[in-house]
Design a protein around this nucleic acid. Sequence first.
DNA 1: TTCCTTCTGTGATAAAAGTCACTTTCTGGC
DNA 2: GCCAGAAAGTGACTTTTATCACAGAAGGAA
Lengths: 214, 214
Amino acid sequence: MEPTQSIINYLDASFKSFEPGLRDRIAEAGVLKNIPAGEVIMRTGQYIKHSVLIASGRVKLYREGDDGQEVFIYYLEEGNACALSMICATKQESSEIMAKAVDDTTIIVIPIRMMDELMTTYRSWYYFVLENYRSRFEELLTVLDSVIFKAMDERLEFYLRNQFKSKGVDELTITHLEIANDLNTSREVVSRLLKKMELNGKIRLFRNSIAWVG
Amino acid sequence: MEPTQSIINYLDASFKSFEPGLRDRIAEAGVLKNIPAGEVIMRTGQYIKHSVLIASGRVKLYREGDDGQEVFIYYLEEGNACALSMICATKQESSEIMAKAVDDTTIIVIPIRMMDELMTTYRSWYYFVLENYRSRFEELLTVLDSVIFKAMDERLEFYLRNQFKSKGVDELTITHLEIANDLNTSREVVSRLLKKMELNGKIRLFRNSIAWVG
DNA sequence: TTCCTTCTGTGATAAAAGTCACTTTCTGGC
DNA sequence: GCCAGAAAGTGACTTTTATCACAGAAGGAA
């Protein structure tokens, strides 16, 4: 398939709010890039020179601690943009988070110098950018909430709900250690709390996976 | 002083990046509003119908917990905009935080329906909005950091540094209870940790105030 | 099968933070 | 000066979370 054609396909499929002119302009100037599952797209301290749209797949965003801890913040999915890439982009400042592809992911990369043009020419672009920002901002506030106000059992439940919902599954393939890392706690704590949730009938535990009972 | 003139004065003083046309347009369509110290500007769940620029004074942003706790997130100062007001504005969704004037504050209120016009007409406006967003976003990440990765003693120190720096003083008028509320902990914990910091020579404690020793 | 690694379960203990109860200190107003 | 109320100090205790030390279970590879 010819690349320009592909970008249009992705835009039509996942960025439906884009007006035709915007779609064509991005198809013209953007570049498709495939990221294999597990690869890091962006790292703390790295300068960003492009805006990034997620055309397909799923990207996990982490905040990195001083000792290499990686705490899960949120997912970026098909139709999202990396808010930070747009914003850091405008000032070329350094990023503070780490983005890793969890599935095989296709992104559309747009050179930052186009931001001016898109912003002032296409209303649907600036709507998209602001709306994207707003929803990331609120997601960030939600995460902050759960960390500030909730104890670990509630944080865990919030985390699991999020995972089940975001992945659209009722059985989640994940280990206790992975969860513990995402929540910046220890594996034992997660195991114990999960056990408690199982006793309460909320979930069922298996090796390498958790099923939602609800 | 005639209001339109006043807006221009404020814009010239604190929003120097605005191009002349933008300045005049805001002076024309914006409204000045005085908020006495202590008054709430915006509340969780409230719908926002205006964009808000801080012309003078200082606004404290809190995140509200389920039981009425109010945790400090960041300050908005002269020359800042309320990022949420711009973004919620574009979609008229509900706010999730609470903004309270800590000093007597003057704000410039801009009707949301002008966002389209400003965004597409004035490059300095969209730069301003995005840059504002970016910096709030990063501030939020910093707060998240300290909550996720730091124990209470470090959070307290981070909080104090922030206060001293943001207010530009070396003696801070505040009670232990106020700090405890801002950090969502208890007064005793704050008292004990402050005492420890005093013993370590970082600060000196007085009734109703704390002096930075550095 | 037999190892070996990874995942999970669990008790014991330690450390951090929150809670309760009370005292002391300061300060402003009478 | 005296008193009331707010602010701050402190000991004792509980709860939550983290850490340590294992043990058992599951599954893959030789």
